[in-house]
């Protein structure tokens, strides 16, 4: 895990270094002069040699000091903590939507895989995966939020301020982000169940007289759910991407939005800290799902070791 984090640190530092512009330009603004930009750069320490800046940042981060925003002077930790609850709630909401829709859909798809219901669910899955997140969000916002007016079209209300409004304002964003994942869950659950039903041990169990229902729920479903969990875990990588767009469309002050505006202003410390945070979360989730999966299927574990 550490090499990947280090590699990510190097990559993001390099990418930001080659990117034209810097925070000094943003601070100086259109009424500034080049001389002023240089002055600002010097006062921010941006004129030091790149390796020096890199090591300095790495050292401080390793000790828990994520730096301060070049732009507004707030501590990066404070900025991250301010926005973390929003994105965490969005991610949670998306997962809830995804399981609430995906699990029944997958189950139904498997039980009635031959008939029209199964075909319909397949179609829904394919479309839900193909529609871009931002477009889905806009459609929800305009038609459900503004025209029908039954849910807030955008904005965020903190849970501590008004729990009901908070939940209401998260419905559309969660749907936007969660539908795609729901489709993935449905697809994998259905495939996992159908595959499971073909396994030898199931045939044996049925031959022994166990009811179909019992077989389904005790063995097949459990194994199928494992693969669903693995795949859902992998989706975390794409969650930040979806969050950037969803938070922009629905004006949620979350981490995705922070990433977007920080890139625009080249707020280096914020971008770097967010990147490492995202990578760390992704690695942890991957680790967890790898362990679970390896635990379930010993064959995979040996294959990995090659």
């Amino acid at each position: 895990m550490v090499p990947v984090l280090l590699g990510s640190a190097i990559l993001i530092f390099f990418l930001l270094f080659v990117l034209p512009g810097d925070p000094a330009v943003f601070i100086a603004g259109g009424r500034g002069t080049e001389a002023q930009v240089e002055l600002i750069r010097r006062s921010l320490g941006l004129d030091r040699p790149v390796p020096v800046q890199f090591v300095d940042w790495l050292w401080r981060t390793a000790h828990g000091d994520f730096g301060t925003s070049y732009i507004n002077g707030f501590s990066v930790k404070v900025l991250l903590l301010q926005r973390l609850p929003v994105t965490a709630e969005l991610a949670l909401g998306a997962i809830v939507v995804a399981t609430a829709i995906g699990l029944p859909a997958g189950l139904a798809g498997a039980l009635w895989s031959e008939g029209p219901i199964g075909r319909l669910i397949d179609l829904f899955n394919a479309v839900a995966i193909a529609v871009p997140v931002f477009w889905l969000g806009i459609l929800f916002q305009i038609y459900i939020g503004l025209q029908l007016g039954i849910l807030p079209a955008l904005g965020y209300v903190a849970f501590t301020d008004d729990p009901v409004e908070n939940l209401r304002s998260m419905v559309l964003p969660s749907l936007t982000l969660g539908l795609g994942i729901a489709a993935v869950i449905a697809r994998f659950l259905k495939a996992g169940i159908l595959e499971g039903l073909r396994q030898n041990y199931v045939v044996t169990a049925r031959a022994k007289g166990l009811s179909r229902r019992r077989v389904l729920f005790k063995h097949v479903l459990r194994n199928a759910l494992m693969s669903v969990v693995t795949v859902t875990g992998l989706q975390f990588g794409g969650l930040l991407g979806g969050a950037v767009l969803t938070e922009s469309v629905f004006n949620l002050p979350g981490l995705g939005n922070l990433m977007w505006i920080s890139i625009q202003r080249r707020d280096y410390f914020v971008i770097q800290a967010l990147t490492l945070l995202t990578v760390a979360v992704f690695l942890l989730v991957n680790l967890a799902t790898d362990l679970t999966y390896g635990f379930i299927d010993p064959r995979i574990r040996t294959q990995e070791e090659q």
Partner: peptide, 11 residues
């Protein structure tokens, strides 16, 4: 170009 690059070039 994006705003930051634009300002940088403009200055």
């Amino acid at each position: 170009v994006d705003s930051n690059t634009h300002t940088s070039l403009g200055l």
